[in-house]
């Protein structure tokens, strides 16, 4: 597995180069648009994989997931890691995407007491964190209760 939406807090610098910038840049397709991979055998993966976990075939083709799914399980955080303090309390969830893979993500636009297993959710692109007042703003997927089209 490579990628995902987790934001580590190690603002790694090697030789004066901020590795966070390049790492976040490499992940932009999966974070902004939920781009994973699909194997010839039909297995779909998120985050994207180089080798199919089912048939061990390579290569994998990129596929954009629809972004709709169902809450499988969840937990609410009241003590946040560095960089996430402004969001507490917030809920992270395991989400069964309609196309197959299960992913972990933060929920948004929903109060913790209103989250339930089986709740239908959709992907939105939001701020994941800010690297301080002068650093990068990291955007990526979160999930919220589905918003309908009509009043």
């Amino acid at each position: 597995m490579y990628g995902g939406n987790c934001c580590h807090n190690n603002n790694s610098h090697i030789g004066g180069v901020n590795l966070e910038i390049s790492r976040n840049w490499r992940l932009r397709n999966q974070r902004y648009r939920l781009v994973g991979t699909e194997c010839g055998c039909g297995h779909r993966s998120f985050p994207p994989r180089r080798i199919c976990p089912t048939c061990r075939e390579n290569p994998q083709n990129p596929v954009q997931f629809s972004g709709t799914g169902t809450v499988y399980s969840y937990s609410t955080l009241y003590e946040a890691p560095e960089g996430f303090e402004q969001f507490i309390p917030y809920t992270v969830a395991l989400i069964d995407l309609d196309e197959g893979p299960m992913i972990s993500a933060q929920l948004t636009d929903v109060d913790p007491e209103d989250v339930a297993i089986g709740m239908r959710v959709e992907m939105v692109t939001r701020k994941l964190k800010e690297q301080g007042e002068s650093g990068l703003i990291v955007y990526g997927y979160k999930f919220r209760p589905i918003v309908g089209c009509y009043p």
Partner: peptide, 8 residues
């Protein structure tokens, strides 16, 4: 919301 700005 806390995770929203003009870009989102």
């Amino acid at each position: 919301g806390p995770d929203e700005d003009a870009i989102t």
